[in-house]
Each structure stands twice: as structure tokens, then as C-alpha cells.
Write a protein that binds this DNA or RNA. Structure first.
Length: 838
RNA sequence: GCGGGUGUGGCGGAAUGGUAGACGCCGGGGACUUAAAAUCCCCUGUCCUUUGGACGUGUGGGUUCGAGUCCCACCACCCGCACCA
């Protein structure tokens, strides 16, 4: 190898990608006796092009997968496509193409883009969720869940766009109007399919405790989402003869209840026969739901004239309709305790209702006035008859026991988590495998009839669900009675597609969704990597689906992802100009960036440099992976993705940064070119540095601290460059090739081959570390006077405290600083420092 | 409002309670070259009375021989949830 040959990524990248493909280097063998490692990144939606965030995500997983392979693991590192969803239908409507064709074209393009980055993927397991083969098995699983009692139908409200004749997701409703049609959105009741995720609420909550290798943030978000609360449900007797159940988490404050409130949708509210009541209810419904509106929303109420009898005092409490009470939590009605709940406090203040104190710092404070707000904290119970003097928790237990004795109610756990509505009135999704028969009702499709495939001949130019509109698709015989029946025309939420794809990657039999034994060899996923935006929905649904399958005996594993890592975004500064009142943005490739300013290539004029923010099309601060791979090669791009920023934080893309990475690729190539297999001398210091670096990089990769691994590689590179030829140096160069192999695999293969190695570096074992070489025999000791650094000195490793103290006191700089002061104490930390206290 | 996170040079960031600023980027100077590119070398936290010294990790306190790191209070920014009784 000659060092004046520049490394040429344009030819090397493709050449090695080809070699790996021919040799099936990254094919996962489930029969291998090696320990298994399943590395998975969240699979992409085939939107058309890979974006830089994908590159970062898959590079991280790739480094880990390659490292695991080098350290003796059989690695499963697959890739596929989350291929159902709305953008395909939107494209169909806008461009007149078929969603399937559009999706498959995108997949083809994106796959080619991914391949150019040289990821160590087992492409033989590639799948797309829009493949019949995939969604047919999904239909079977859905029927299994139905038979296990985990699927049901219920009438439920949806956002209906009357122009597009379609159901809209909440985020498609903008200011009460459909995002596409602009039509006023209506609430409609539709019969929809639900999954009983609430049956698993307790399990899903408890299971979080076992996920030590998940970010705390994600666990907390899920915990809050599941939202367990424990309290009391009991009924008030109303003056109109009805009973009104309420739910409270503070039963201990029951003697402080001064009114009762119901939601605007509550039957009690609807039952009030007065024009004013109806007007008030309408007003409540109109109220906005945005954050700002809720923040400032005034508590409003309407006195129904009905009263509720307090179960212990017998007092008649007024019953209000209140705008702050939610119908879909608890019972839709509350006992209001103004003294100890801020919302109730505001309401009581507004309507002049009493605010009794029932919790106080001590029994002596029973009459202490409130200081303009409710006191929700701990204390002892006062003014509460038989509860007086008890602590809050004790009082809760006492009151629940008393209510239960009376047969008036019971302790109850309430969850915030709702059942998962999975019906979508859409074409591009998994058809729900059910049949509606006039005489037999809702009947699951026979498993032999699966997959129920989507019809190809559909029309997207007319509004509404194409499946519903299709002339023949829904006509079918009832599997039970053989009579005329209709297929379900709803399709499944795409989150179902992503709730089990990791199982199908692990095992792909033709006749069933997966083979349990085969799956058991790989699952759980050892390391899952993806964006924080999936912290709740995808990750909770996948956990639920996995547990549901385990519950049905189809799987052993209960938690699909042993470790989770959520990576940061790739960001970029923005370039803009004010044009009248408008801000016009420019793309990075329209700009020439200088140290202090940015110029528009077109006219040479200056543009404003904006904040470094998430890449987005509207701000034009995007870079295209293809372009940068063309310019710098895959290895430089991969290296950039791993450098500088810790992987969980945002990574600012910069032209200068990628240039630096590209320079380093070539610098390494020159260094590798200096490899001399025959050098003989020993260089102990360099050998030590090499072993230390190998150990540290391994540790960093395992901790996913790629930025630190990168820094260590830079350091070793610098040291090797300066070192004269020796056997140690040759070993260092060879080791460097292996250390960078997971990150810059093309360069590493090229160098490995040039060094005369016969196999692939991708198949090579991680370099061995000699533990004896990790220990230095000389250390630098810091010498402080009263905690301030005065000198450093070199001492043999393990020098005695006495020796170190003597050496420190011998220092001229230290003596100058001491200036004859009396030494009170000397602290010696062996191999670290000496601190002289005067 | 509730919950969580983050604050260190011009920038991205290192740092088991023990030499703050590793490593990279930017910037400055130099070598090589007719010139440029590429490459290599040196400098690069602030300030001062510069072979030395003071200050310095958002702010103010505290613990300690010693604090970026631990404790208390506060400030700023970011993220999630949102009237959940």
C-alpha cells in the first residue's frame, strides 16, 4: 500500500458493500451456538427519502451490532418498513398514484440509500408491513386476541370531516377544521374496534420497574400515561331521589366537602329541564382545549337546585354543573373540598361557598384561615368527627372502611389509561378480519381465508373510505350461516403493525406469525434505539401486544425491549432574510458559510444566521444524506454521526464538522499506509496506550458513548503518528483498524486487506487487551497548597504516602507558596495528589 | 400548574469528590509551494504588574483538606403531560 494513494470512498464503499452482500457477512443464524444479540432500530416509514435522523439512528445501532459481532455474538440486526399509513393515501389523492405503488417505489429508493451507508443489516429478513404476508399474520393475531376476549366493539366519538367524508385524528383537526378540506369538523358516533389494554394497566405499570435499562424519562412518561390513582367511589343521595356516584382520591377530606359538581355531559346535568342549564352546557362544550385556554379558563358553574346529602353530617350540599369536571374520568362527578383542592377553592371563592378546613399542621390549628389558596399537603385531620387527629393516610383507610360497612361505596383504583381504539376508516392499512352478518352478528373471518387482502382497484378521487365504496370487495358469505354478509371496511391503526414486527424479524414461518421457539432464541431485543417521540404510544403498545401474546401462551417473553435508547435529533442552523413582513429561508447548499457570516451564493449578499434547530422542510435547514455521502463517503458521514455530541443529545450538523471527519478518514488512511509488519522494536508507552484505548473504546461502545470512543481514537491516532517504527506501533496501527471498523467499516476493510489480512475485518475478533498493560508504572501527582494547585510531579505508581509527601515538600514552587507557614496537615491520595494544609 | 431534563471557552463537548476545559470544530501564526490545494508544526478560557500570579463550570449560600461533581435556595432554557378530583 502506498501512502500517496488517496482513499477513494466512491469506489471503496460500493466494493465492500458488495463483498459483504456476496459473503452474507451479516446474516443472522439462529442455529449458531454463540450467545445471541438482537440489535434493533425503530424501522422507518417509507416517506420517500431517508433523512439525516435515520442515518444517525442506524449508525448507532450499526456500531453496536458490528461490535457485538466482533466480541463473539451471533447478531440479529434486521431492517424493514413501517409501510402502512396516511401519507400514501394523501399521495394517492394528490398525485393519482396507487398507495401501494407509491410505497413500494419509496421503499426501493430508501433501501438503496441505506445500502450506500454500509449498514451491517441482515437484508434477508427485510419485511414491509404492507406485504400481505405480514398483515395476513397480523389479522390472525387480531382474531386470536378477539378469541382471548381482548378485542371488543364500542360506540365512540370521532372527528368527522363532512367534506372528505373521513375520520380525522386529533392532530388533523386545526382550530376545529379539517386540515385538508378546511371544513368544520363534526363529532360523530361510530362503532369502533378496541383493544383491552386497560386489562394490562397494572402489569404494564409494574413491568416498568424491571426496565432498568430504559431511560427514566420514558418510564416516567409511561407511568404518568397509565396514571394509576387510588381512592374511594361512593354515592350521594340526591334530593330528587337519585343516587350520584363520585370518585375521590382524598376521602380523608370528606368532612370538608361543601358542594358537589358534575360534568356538563353528566346525566344529572342533561336531566335539568331548563333553558339556562342547556345554555350553560353548550357554553362548557365550546370551551377551548388548548394549553393556554385551560391555563386561564375561569371556573364556571351552574346551580342545578338539586342537593346531595352528606353521608356523615347529613348536610344538604348544592349540586353544580361545573366546566372543570371531566366526564371520562372517574364517575364524571366529584365531591368538592375547597380547602384542600385548588380547583374547588377557586370555584368556591367565585360562588361564595364555604371553605372548611379539615387538614391542619396540628390539632391546635383547626381554625387557621387559608392563605388565598387550597392546602393540598399532609397534616392531621381536624373538624372531622371520628377522623380528628388522624394522619391523612390513616384517615383514608378509616373512611373507606366506614363507607364500605355502610354499603355506600368502596375503595377503588382508577386509571387514566383508556382502551386502545384501533379502527381507522382508511384504505392503506390492515383490513380488520371480521364479517358483519344480519343474523349472526360480528363474526371473525375463518383463519383459512387469511390474508384478507386489500383490493387493488380503488378510487381515491372521491372522498370517503375506498373500501366502503368499493363495488364488490365487502360482499362476502357469512362464515357461520352462509348467508349474505359484509366485510368490515375499517382497517387497523398502524401502531399495531409496529407492535410485533420485532417478532417477525426474529422468525418468519409461512404458516404462522412466528415460531415461538425461534423467537425465544433472539428475544428480548437486547438494544432498541429510536426517537423519544415514541416514548409513549409505540413503546406502550408494543409492550402491551407482547404481554397479550404472552398471556395467550404464544410467547414466553413479556417485555420486548430489554434496553431502550432514545437518540437526539440532528439539527442545523437556519439561513433567512426578511422580505417585507415575510421571512424567506434558504437551504444550506444555497449558502457559502464563512467564519462570521453566511452569504447567499446567488447574489453574494449576506443572510441572517438563525438558531440551531431541528431540521425541517419549512425552515429549509436540511441536508440530504445522498448528497453528503456522494461528497464525503459513507465513513465520514458515519463518523460525524458519532462524534462530538453525546448520542442522547441533539447533534448540530455543520459543513466544517463533516469536512473535519473527512480529513480524519484520509489521515487514518495515510497512517494505515505506514503499517510495517516487520518492525521489531518495543515501545512500551505506545503499547500501553494501545491497550488502554482498546479497553476504553469497548467500554464506551457498550455504554453507547460513541462521542467518547471517537475522542479516544483521535488520541491514539495522534500518539501513533508521532511514534517511531516498532512492533508496538505496528500492533497499534492494526488495532486502530479494528477499533474504527464498527464506525468506518469501508476504510477499515480496505486497510485490513492492504495489510495483507485474508479475512474481513467485519469477521475479525475484537483486539485482545492485556490487563497488565492497562496499568501505568509512572503517575503524575498534583501538589496542592490549601487546595490550590502549585506543582505537579512524576512518581512511580504505588509510591508510599511518606515518599509522596517528601517529594511534594521538596518542590521549590511548593516551598515558595508555603513561605514558611506552619504545616497543619498533609493529605495524600496515593497515585493522585498531595494537599498541604497550613 | 404538575413531572422531568439541561446549564462548563467563540462552538459541540471531556472530567470514579482529587491537575477543569480531554477530543473535535472555528480562529491565529509558521513550514512546504512560483502560487494554491493538500499536508505538517506551534498557539488558542479571561485578566494582570507575564520565568510569575489572580480569577474561572448559570446565581447565592453550605459541607469538605479539596466541589463542575454532594446538600439547600434561586434563575434561565428545553421536553412531556395538562382542570385526571
Amino acid at each position: 500500500m502506498s501512502s500517496d494513494n488517496r482513499f477513494d470512498p466512491a469506489s471503496a464503499d460500493a466494493r465492500w458493500q458488495n463483498v459483504w452482500e456476496q459473503a452474507q457477512t451479516f446474516r443472522a443464524d439462529s442455529g449458531s451456538p454463540k450467545p445471541k444479540s438482537y440489535v434493533l432500530e425503530m424501522f422507518p416509514y417509507p416517506s420517500g427519502r431517508i433523512h439525516i435522523g435515520h442515518v444517525r439512528n442506524y449508525t448507532m445501532g450499526d456500531v453496536l451490532a458490528r461490535y457485538k459481532k466482533a466480541t463473539g455474538h451471533e447478531v440479529l440486526h434486521p431492517m424493514g418498513w413501517d409501510a402502512f399509513g396516511m401519507p400514501a393515501e394523501n399521495a394517492a389523492m394528490e398525485k393519482g398514484v396507487h398507495p401501494g405503488g407509491w410505497t413500494r417505489d419509496n421503499i426501493e429508493h430508501m433501501k438503496a440509500q441505506l445500502k450506500r451507508l454500509g449498514f451491517a443489516l441482515d437484508w434477508s429478513r427485510e419485511l414491509a408491513t404492507c406485504d400481505q404476508d405480514y398483515y395476513g399474520h397480523e389479522q390472525a393475531l387480531f382474531i386470536d386476541l378477539f378469541e382471548a376476549g381482548l378485542v371488543y366493539r364500542k360506540e365512540s366519538e370521532v372527528n368527522w370531516d363532512p367534506v372528505d367524508m373521513t375520520v380525522l385524528a386529533n392532530e388533523q383537526v386545526i382550530d376545529g377544521k379539517g386540515w385538508r378540506s378546511g371544513a368544520e369538523v363534526e363529532k360523530r358516533k361510530l362503532n369502533q374496534w378496541f383493544l383491552k389494554i386497560t386489562d394490562f394497566a397494572e402489569e404494564l405499570l409494574d413491568g416498568l420497574g424491571g426496565l432498568e435499562n430504559w431511560p427514566d424519562k420514558v418510564r416516567l412518561m409511561q407511568e404518568n400515561w397509565i396514571g394509576k390513582s387510588q381512592g374511594l367511589e361512593f354515592s350521594f343521595d340526591l334530593s330528587n331521589g337519585d343516587k350520584l356516584p363520585v370518585y375521590t382520591t382524598r376521602p380523608d377530606t370528606i368532612f370538608g366537602a361543601s358542594f358537589v359538581a358534575v360534568a356538563a355531559d353528566h346525566p344529572v346535568a342533561r336531566g335539568i329541564d331548563s333553558e339556562e342549564a342547556r345554555e350553560f352546557i353548550a357554553l362548557c362544550k365550546k370551551g377551548g382545549t388548548t394549553a393556554a385556554e385551560l391555563e386561564t379558563a375561569e371556573k364556571l358553574g351552574f346551580d342545578t337546585g338539586i342537593t346531595a346529602k352528606h353521608p356523615f353530617t347529613g348536610a344538604d350540599l348544592p349540586v353544580y354543573i361545573a366546566n372543570f369536571v371531566l366526564m371520562d374520568y372517574g364517575t364524571g362527578a366529584i365531591m368538592a373540598v375547597p380547602g384542600h383542592d385548588q380547583r374547588d377553592f377557586e370555584f368556591a371563592t367565585k360562588y361564595g361557598l364555604p371553605t372548611p378546613r379539615v387538614v391542619a399542621p396540628s390539632l391546635d390549628d383547626a381554625d387557621k384561615p387559608f392563605d388565598g389558596e387550597a392546602e393540598a399537603g399532609e397534616g392531621v385531620i381536624v373538624n372531622s368527627d371520628f377522623l380528628d387527629g388522624m394522619e391523612v393516610e390513616e384517615a383514608k383507610r378509616a373512611i373507606i372502611a366506614r363507607i364500605e360497612e355502610q354499603g355506600r361505596g368502596a375503595g377503588k383504583t382508577v386509571w387514566r389509561l383508556r382502551d386502545w381504539g384501533v379502527s381507522r376508516q382508511r384504505y392503506w392499512g390492515t383490513p380488520i378480519p371480521f364479517i358483519h352478518c344480519k343474523s349472526c352478528g360480528v363474526v371473525p373471518a375463518p383463519k383459512e381465508s387469511l390474508p384478507i387482502t386489500l383490493p387493488e382497484d380503488v378510487d381515491f378521487q372521491t372522498p370517503g373510505n375506498p373500501l366502503l365504496r368499493h363495488p364488490t370487495w365487502k360482499d362476502v358469505e357469512c362464515p357461520k350461516c352462509g348467508g349474505k354478509a359484509e366485510r368490515e371496511t375499517d382497517t387497523l391503526d398502524t401502531f399495531i403493525n409496529s407492535s410485533w414486527y420485532f417478532l417477525r424479524f426474529a422468525s418468519q414461518p409461512a404458516d404462522k406469525p412466528f415460531d415461538a421457539e425461534e423467537v425465544a432464541k433472539w428475544m428480548p431485543v437486547e438494544q432498541y434505539i429510536g426517537g423519544i417521540e415514541h416514548a409513549i404510544l409505540h413503546l406502550l403498545y408494543a409492550r402491551f401486544w407482547t404481554r397479550a401474546l404472552a398471556h395467550m401462551g404464544q410467547l414466553e417473553v413479556k417485555e420486548p425491549f430489554a434496553s431502550l435508547f432514545t437518540q437526539g435529533m440532528v439539527t442545523h442552523e437556519t439561513y433567512s432574510r426578511k422580505d417585507g413582513g415575510k421571512t424567506v429561508y434558504f437551504a444550506p447548499d444555497e449558502i457559502s458559510r464563512e467564519a462570521e457570516r453566511a452569504l447567499l451564493k446567488d447574489d453574494g449578499g449576506e443572510v441572517d444566521i438563525g438558531r440551531v434547530i431541528k431540521m425541517s422542510k419549512s425552515k429549509k435547514n436540511v441536508v440530504d444524506p445522498d448528497t453528503i455521502v456522494d461528497t464525503y463517503g459513507a465513513d465520514a458521514v458515519r463518523w460525524f454521526m458519532l462524534s462530538d455530541s453525546p448520542p442522547e443529545r441533539d447533534l448540530p450538523w455543520s459543513e466544517a464538522g463533516i469536512e473535519g471527519c473527512s480529513r480524519f478518514v484520509h489521515r487514518l488512511w495515510r497512517l494505515f499506509g505506514s503499517y510495517d509488519a516487520n518492525a521489531a522494536a518495543e515501545d512500551k508507552a505506545l503499547a500501553r496506550k494501545t491497550h488502554q484505548t482498546i479497553a476504553a473504546v469497548a467500554e464506551d461502545i457498550e455504554a453507547l458513548s460513541f462521542n467518547k470512543a471517537v475522542a479516544r481514537i483521535y488520541e491514539l491516532t495522534g500518539a501513533v503518528e508521532k511514534a517511531p517504527a516498532s512492533a508496538s506501533r505496528s500492533h497499534a496501527v492494526r488495532s486502530l483498524v479494528q477499533l474504527v471498523a464498527p464506525m468506518m467499516p469501508h476504510l477499515a476493510e480496505e486497510a485490513w486487506a492492504a495489510m495483507g489480512e485474508t479475512g474481513l475485518v467485519s469477521d475479525a475478533e475484537w483486539p485482545k487487551v492485556d490487563p497488565a498493560m492497562l496499568v501505568e508504572d509512572e503517575v503524575t501527582i498534583a501538589v496542592q497548597h490549601k487546595g490550590k494547585l502549585r506543582d505537579t510531579l512524576t512518581a512511580p505508581k504505588g509510591a508510599s504516602k511518606e515518599d509522596l509527601e517528601a517529594m511534594a515538600l521538596a518542590s521549590e514552587k511548593v516551598q515558595r507558596s508555603l513561605d514558611g507557614a506552619e504545616i497543619r496537615k498533609v493529605i495524600v491520595v496515593p497515585d493522585r495528589l498531595v494537599n498541604i494544609v497550613t
